[in-house]
């Protein structure tokens, strides 16, 4: 499922609420049948924050191994995940010396550890080259086919096409929800960017 909206529309706040790190003014959030932030959810959610939250003074391998040990997953899964995000060649490199894209993939790798049921990915493809973006979306679809739930946010409207379901946000309010096809027919537009503009205009 994709969460689309311009900067400041509340995408990260929603994700933080689901993960249970956002102080909520009112209401409650239920995730996989549990209160958001409960202990039972700790190994079930993989969270990729917008700014890559990794230790820049550790190597890629040390970063992944540390998070793996905290999660209690085997170190074999570390090798698999390096393959998955295509960082095998950078294993011994310090995270501080990685390029922006590599750093984002390292952070993604830490979110994938322990194969969580629910993956929350906050702008995972921002700043990545088109080829890599395509690769990542392939990976996301593979994970979805394996039965995982993925919540992906983006402010780039053309990424919406790649999601099964969409929620469009603006200024903290939901503009619309539905599949990309539904939203297009609703607004009689054939481009997601136009869909968004026409929805904003309709309000």
């Amino acid at each position: 499922m994709g969460l689309l909206g311009p900067s400041g529309s509340g995408k990260t706040t929603i994700f933080r609420s689901i993960v249970g790190v956002q102080a909520i003014a009112q209401g409650s959030v239920q995730v996989l049948g549990l209160e958001a932030g409960s202990v039972g959810l700790r190994t079930k959610i993989g969270y990729l924050t917008q700014s890559a939250s990794v230790y820049s003074d550790l190597t890629c391998e040390e970063n992944l191994k540390y998070f793996a040990r905290i999660l209690g997953t085997s170190e074999i899964s570390v090798d698999e995940i390096f393959e998955l995000v295509d960082l095998g060649a950078n294993r011994k490199q310090l995270a501080s010396s990685l390029s922006g894209g590599e750093r984002a993939r390292l952070a993604l790798a830490t979110a994938l550890l322990g194969s969580p049921e629910l993956l929350i990915l906050d702008e995972p493809t921002v700043g990545l080259d088109p080829l890599l973006r395509m690769e990542l979306w392939k990976l996301f679809h593979r994970l979805a086919q394996q039965g995982k739930t993925l919540l992906v946010s983006s402010h780039v409207m053309d990424e919406a096409e790649r999601c099964d379901e969409l929620t469009l946000l603006r200024e903290g309010k939901i503009l619309a929800t539905g599949t990309p096809a539904e939203l297009k027919s609703q607004t009689a537009c054939d481009d997601m960017e136009d869909v968004f503009i026409s929805l904003v205009g309709a309000k």
């Binding site: 932030g37 700790r42 190994t43 969270y47 700014s51 939250s53 998070f67 905290i70």
Partner: peptide
């Protein structure tokens, strides 16, 4: 500030 603390606190530690 790097977000690693928040990242850790949602894990089992």
């Amino acid at each position: 500030t790097s977000g690693t603390l928040e990242r850790l606190l949602i894990l089992p530690i």
